[in-house]
Design a protein around this nucleic acid. Sequence first.
DNA 1: AATGAATGAGTTTTCATTCAT
DNA 2: TATGAATGAAAACTCATTCAT
Lengths: 194, 194, 194, 194
Amino acid sequence: MTTREEQKNQTRSKILKCAFEVFSKNGFAAPTLDIAKAAGVSHGTIFVHFSTKEDLIIQLVRNFSFKLRSTIIVPLSSPKGIENFLINYMDVIQKNEQFYIRLIGEKDLLPDEARLMFLNLQLSNARSFATIVKLQRNSMKLKNIPSTMMFNTWIGLVHYYLLNKDLFSPKGSVIKKYRDELISTYLELIRVQD
Amino acid sequence: MTTREEQKNQTRSKILKCAFEVFSKNGFAAPTLDIAKAAGVSHGTIFVHFSTKEDLIIQLVRNFSFKLRSTIIVPLSSPKGIENFLINYMDVIQKNEQFYIRLIGEKDLLPDEARLMFLNLQLSNARSFATIVKLQRNSMKLKNIPSTMMFNTWIGLVHYYLLNKDLFSPKGSVIKKYRDELISTYLELIRVQD
Amino acid sequence: MTTREEQKNQTRSKILKCAFEVFSKNGFAAPTLDIAKAAGVSHGTIFVHFSTKEDLIIQLVRNFSFKLRSTIIVPLSSPKGIENFLINYMDVIQKNEQFYIRLIGEKDLLPDEARLMFLNLQLSNARSFATIVKLQRNSMKLKNIPSTMMFNTWIGLVHYYLLNKDLFSPKGSVIKKYRDELISTYLELIRVQD
Amino acid sequence: MTTREEQKNQTRSKILKCAFEVFSKNGFAAPTLDIAKAAGVSHGTIFVHFSTKEDLIIQLVRNFSFKLRSTIIVPLSSPKGIENFLINYMDVIQKNEQFYIRLIGEKDLLPDEARLMFLNLQLSNARSFATIVKLQRNSMKLKNIPSTMMFNTWIGLVHYYLLNKDLFSPKGSVIKKYRDELISTYLELIRVQD
DNA sequence: AATGAATGAGTTTTCATTCAT
DNA sequence: TATGAATGAAAACTCATTCAT
């Protein structure tokens, strides 16, 4: 890679990084000029690397999905498979809580392609979860509920807390504050009591 | 009421009705001009009846909260109290599904006053639910989970389906399609199995 | 005059009175709606009595000019003619200080006709003053200066204080505060010292 | 300075110049769109260079005050100090007569900052004048009048002519037409005659 | 005569995007 | 490749004036 190309990549990365931060903080309606300022590049430079604001968002969501996908561990045959999955899931989200909140909260502002990618990520997670649940049914008596529903209940609960962060945890991370309570509640719910 | 007043009220109602529809369809960022067009009045007329766009939204949310409040029945001492509450809850939401979705999905675009009103409505519902749950514990064995968490799980699940309506039910009402499944799943989860 | 006509006149007077007050307080750019509210009549009523806002202002200035004209006394053959004129002039202005300030300060917002009327008033005053000066020259040694200039110096000084009321007397009347100082300064200036 | 910067400065200057002309001609209530048209730039361009209309006015008044300040000469120890000051004062005003008239006539439309700057300029001039008067008292017998009053009489007279330009000199410059008469009248007034 | 709801042209400001340098 | 000045299409809101009642 030539020096020129390297520098180009660096600029591009810088923009992506700063866009991530600006959008996390101010939402996807934040002006592209703010991103340029944050990245220390000119306004026009953004459009050298990304044809439109939509394109920038798409790349951002693509990277984000990829990162999440590669971070979410699916502990297939563990006896505590579900719990481990949930713990890991929470940790992953917590690391990019603000951006994740924007993603689920401003879904309708996203370009179609970005929305689809994020959707696919969730579907993929749902499938992973379903697999784990299936395996876990052996070692743990679970409520007789379709695994889709099981996942949706979980993700619904988590998203509810995330979207109402200002209510539940205005200052710090919601996930950090409620992680354990959410997990234990959920596990309690899906378990058949003896 | 004189004819003049009637006509004024009609215009006001027409604007409110059309604003409700336009916001339901396009979100709260929809231009006031679109509402004027939909209502068949001039742009200026909107500001004769509502001092600002924010004011219009506040009135809209006020009416909506009031309607919901007066429609949500709280069947205190029924043996099927929880189930009846949930059925009723779903029916009420279903009637204004689109607007409800905008309300929870574009929370951050709302004027403070509107956000607070809607928040209070949800808190009020949470309290009603808690009361019912307490009573129901006698006639039905329930999971040993704080009633707040019980409500949040329910509302999280429902909101998740609403916010992902395009995924679950792109054409018709999500609630109509999933009402029974959501209720039965939820009841199954909170019940202690024998 | 029939009762009907009486009432009509009353409404008209009420509007004129309130317009005078509103314009005094907020300037001629004040909305006609504010005047209607102050007068306790409907917005449309204003345009029943005055075809346009300009027309209303014209009537207002006409009345005002008339009132001033009839209040300004021209003490022709007094030995203290000039001084008496100045004292009276100040008193007359002071009674409607705010409106007078608007008139000289927002001259360019006035309809042509109104501007002309107010101009004529000032010309008439200038002529009166010239006459007095001529008579006074007998009993008092005055600077050898054209009487037009004498008047303009006086009115310039007074208007300067009026237009900078916020500087000279932000709370109460400027004229009240500076009347004596302005008069004595002026008299000192025009007198030939021995 | 690069070509780019030069061009930017040119646009900025062009806007300032045209704003100066448009405001001079139509007053500060003139629409920003008119300025854009006069400058041959798009409406948005104005707001690239000036964050708000108020900001534009502030810059304009700042430049104007600066120009006036640097042009007004204070001939301290001259035997004809006062006369020279007045001549120079008139010349300076004459160069930007229209704008100066708007400034004193639409004072209340100005942003606070602009009003303050122009006020300070006048105060500064008043102080200069006071100094000159003090020195001149040696070489010329002057009326026994506070120097503040001396300045106010002068500026009152000049402003009166300026504000009534349409009366005194509808076509050309008032100052040009009346400069000498105003100065000689004023000098005659403040002098003690022997 | 009085009402007051409705009109619509006019105003400032924002911001993604373009393009000459 | 990067720059950043310039663009122009919105968007919310104001207010004198009209007209059916």
